[in-house]
Design a protein around this nucleic acid. Structure first.
Length: 548
RNA sequence: GGCCCGUUGGUGAAGUGGUUGAACACACAUGCCUUUCACGCAUGCAUUCAUGGGUUCAAAUCCCGUACGGGUCACCA
């Protein structure tokens, strides 16, 4: 019996040929250097920071090279599948700003000419390719049961041999086509295995984008390509999909590195052009006991997408952080081009760290602070408003009602050469500016510092209002008046003099300004007091003093 | 256990045989500036690049062994 006849028995429903698919999914017409990449998760739960990081890079590189990024769903393992898995992936990607040029864009929609992009809808295509392999003696049906394979593995272990279905262990490899056809007709269940041509003693060279040249022994194991239920395993789906979808760069976690020789053998059998491979290091985290481990969504809140969303960390700041740990020269680039779009940065795989980076929230906050400090007040306002509309509607209403005033408040010590860096995320905003709004100004506690005596406080505030306060003063005049007030009441207005002999004075100008600061805002720490007084205005200041 | 990858300070890292007395950034510490806090500025923080050996006039950089960490060896991805 010929291979062709056997193939017809194994895949009687296949009507198309590989050539048909080649025609349906032609080579992409893209500019030189354009990268086609993809994010290909299985719907087994929500996306965590590690895969989010890869999805970001997989999205970033096509975007900066004029290529294509698509989302493919690898739902070939029905056992691990989770309800609403696709929905979760889509919403995580959307929340994270990972847009797609092609592929799955919502729970039941996809775009692009290279679909379907959900593997469970591509079974016919896989079978066409599988049939071709049987016809050309590159694959064969295997009738070994799970129990038999288990026994085989145990034997191999006890003999301390290499584990796997290869060489003399590959029993079904040597069946005749007649025997195969016979058993299939009889209704025996079977899987499809690659008939590997590899030799363990020969080298297989993987030129990894991140790690460079790596040597492996060639694959000589007859891996299962198609499961008993007719659904392909990852390795086979990778071959078919990434070829047909014309992927140029396969970026994936380093856990795939060891199976790359198998993938290369498959591409070689078909004579397909090999995509470039880049195996990314995993994000790590240090535990209290000092050991490193993979970031976990369950244990590490900062690993969940919702964390950024709920904290209100600007997406662009998260991107900047991801780029600084992804590409070692990004930080220097950003420093030299602080106002450039990150998409002008040239990503270099060789600048990626091969070992997993540690996820450092502190560093990310720092980047976010820098990022926010460079934003215009009106842009900050828009973002802040959007954030509080979702998380604190009453504050959002106030922001809307007093829009112009709110922008001025957000502009304190902003839009200057050395802007203030006090917001790492939007949820930092309310706790730092609530006292600027009368609706929210209900101080429970005044944070008096060095001067706590009520009579003294009254005296300072009263003298200031009666003798020195003038709404029209400019900053220098204002501060000179504070100094005069300080001297009049027996404090020291010159910090140098004060430090030389602190005991000679009741206190210093800092103590006096703190009293005024707390009297007006109830807080001991605020941005520039002059600007705050200016914004609040006379009426409000008087009211607050009265209340006090 | 086999195969593969990795190991530079608290963190991310620069570095591919000699202007590296090991950049830079975060964190930390101290000081300065200063109306508070921040910002900013200055200084400090690895006698040393996991470790042992080798090659070399010269090694974090090349080679070998060891240790440690990670991945993988499924009809999971």
């Amino acid at each position: 019996m010929t291979n062709k006849e056997l193939a017809d028995i194994m895949y009687p429903d296949v009507t198309k040929s590989i050539a048909d698919y080649e025609e349906m999914y032609p080579k992409r017409d893209l500019p030189e250097g354009a990268v086609v990449s993809r994010f290909a998760p299985s719907p087994t739960g929500f996306v965590h920071m590690g895969s989010l990081m890869s999805s970001f890079i997989e999205r970033f590189v096509p975007k900066t090279t004029g290529g294509v990024f698509y989302l493919r769903i690898e739902d070939t393992d029905q056992k691990r599948e989770v309800e609403d898995g696709i929905k979760g992936i889509v919403s995580d990607l959307d929340n994270f700003g990972i847009t797609r040029d092609e592929g799955v864009i919502s729970e039941d929609e996809e775009i692009g000419n290279y679909g379907p992009y959900i593997q469970s809808k591509r079974i016919e295509i896989y079978h066409t390719f599988a049939k071709w392999m049987v016809e050309n003696d590159y694959a064969y049906p295997c009738f070994c049961s799970a129990e038999e394979l288990d026994i085989m593995r145990k034997k191999q272990e006890s003999k301390k041999g290499r584990i796997g279905y290869y060489g003399g262990w590959a029993r079904c490899r040597d069946l005749t086509n007649e025997e195969r056809a016979e058993r299939i007709k009889r209704g025996d269940s079977w899987t499809l295995r690659i008939k590997s041509r590899g030799n363990e003693n020969r080298k297989c060279i993987v030129n990894d984008l991140v790690r460079g040249r790596i040597e492996f022994p060639e694959n000589d194991i007859d891996h299962v390509l198609i499961k008993e239920n007719g659904i392909p395993v990852y390795h086979f789906a990778h071959l078919v999909d990434d070829h047909l979808m014309r992927t140029t760069h396969v970026l994936r976690g380093e856990e795939w590195l060891p199976s790359t020789p198998l993938h290369m053998e498959l591409f070689k059998m078909f004579g397909f052009e090999q995509p470039k491979y880049g195996h990314l290091g995993l994000l790590m985290k240090v535990d209290e006991d000092g050991t490193r481990r993979k970031l976990s969504k369950r244990k590490d809140p900062e690993a969940a997408v919702s964390f950024y969303h709920e904290k209100g960390i600007p997406l662009m700041a998260v991107y900047k952080y991801l780029l600084t740990i992804a590409n070692s020269n990004f930080e220097a680039w950003l420093d030299a081009n602080p106002d450039a779009s990150i998409y002008d940065f040239k990503f270099d795989f060789r600048k990626m760290s091969a070992s997993g980076s540690l996820f450092d929230v502190e560093k990310m906050f720092n980047i976010a602070k820098n990022h926010i400090s460079r934003m215009k007040a009106s842009d900050v306002y828009d973002e802040v408003l959007k954030y509080y509309q979702e998380f604190d509607a009453s504050f959002a209403n106030i922001l809307e009602e007093y829009k112009d005033y709110a922008i001025k408040v957000l502009n304190i010590e902003r839009e200057q050469k050395k802007p203030r860096k006090d917001y790492a995320c939007w949820s930092d905003v309310l706790p730092q500016i609530w006292y600027m709004f009368d609706e929210l100004y209900k101080p429970e506690k005044y944070e008096w510092m060095n001067i706590t005596d009520q009579d003294e406080i009254k005296k300072i505030v009263k003298t200031y209002l009666d003798k020195y306060y003038d709404e029209e003063d400019d900053k220098d005049t204002w501060f000179n008046k504070i100094k005069s007030l300080t001297d009049e009441l027996g404090y020291c207005s010159d910090m140098k003099l004060y430090k030389e002999n602190p005991s000679a004075y009741k206190g210093n100008v800092a103590d006096v300004s703190t009293v005024i600061r707390v009297a007006i805002t109830s807080k001991s720490q605020t941005p520039d007091l002059y600007e705050i007084l200016k914004l609040l205005g006379k009426e409000r200041i008087l009211k607050r003093i009265e209340k006090l």
